[in-house]
Design a protein around this nucleic acid. Structure first.
Lengths: 105, 105
DNA sequence: CGTATAGTTGGATGTATGTCAAACAGTTAG
DNA sequence: CTAACTGTTTGACATACATCCAACTATACG
């Protein structure tokens, strides 16, 4: 069901993941996916404060870095965190980032 | 002894740290600092494969993101990881990144 | 004082990125 | 079929970044 190119688990690069997570909008998206699981791009991109084309750009960044998986179903596209792949490759990384992202300012 | 602007611990931003760590050269520098503790810019920048001015640029990125501390002593500048500050603000983050950076390809 | 050492700064360059707007494409509903 | 919905693509633009080289600053050593 992978219509778009996703990196294989062993090809996920640390620097690419860190770069993908280093944008506030993308971090927000990832936080939502972590909290609510699989969701459509519409839902994930709701109230992000950016144009839908910008959100689409961010989904591609996250996908190409290996952070999220996307699958098309009808006219909707569902995206989800690649938790297992990330945890296996970079133990503790995603959790610490998600925890840090929730911290008060 | 802080001659250059370092962000206060509470002002260190997650996205800035992640961006700082998302460059291969900087990750290498951080790995060295983690392994050997405080070192001069010369030592940290040895065999990085980049020009010394490029290395200097990376030190500034790391410093401004709050990842490293630098202090001038004579004509040498010593840089070190802000481990405690980072651990306090983003528990587990630095460790997971360092662990991941050491993983085989 | 003159020279070597340690780093920074400025200029130049090519590449990447974040953003929006508008147009487009595929899917579903009436 | 036509219209609405979901999301991507393209173009345009401003900004940031990684890099090198050359010049500069500041300190230390003879």
């Amino acid at each position: 069901m992978r219509l778009l190119p996703h990196p294989n688990p062993e090809d996920i690069q640390l620097t690419e993941v860190l770069k993908a997570l280093s944008d506030p909008v993308r971090l927000l998206i990832v936080g939502r996916l972590a909290a609510h699981g699989e969701m459509t791009c519409s839902t994930a991109g709701d109230d992000l404060g950016v144009h839908k084309s910008t959100a689409s750009h961010h989904y591609r960044m996250l996908r190409e870095a290996g952070v999220i998986m996307s699958k098309q179903e009808g006219r909707k596209k569902y995206i989800s965190l690649r938790r297992d792949d990330l945890d296996a490759r970079f133990p503790g990384l995603l959790d610490s980032v998600l925890t840090a992202a929730h911290e008060p300012v």
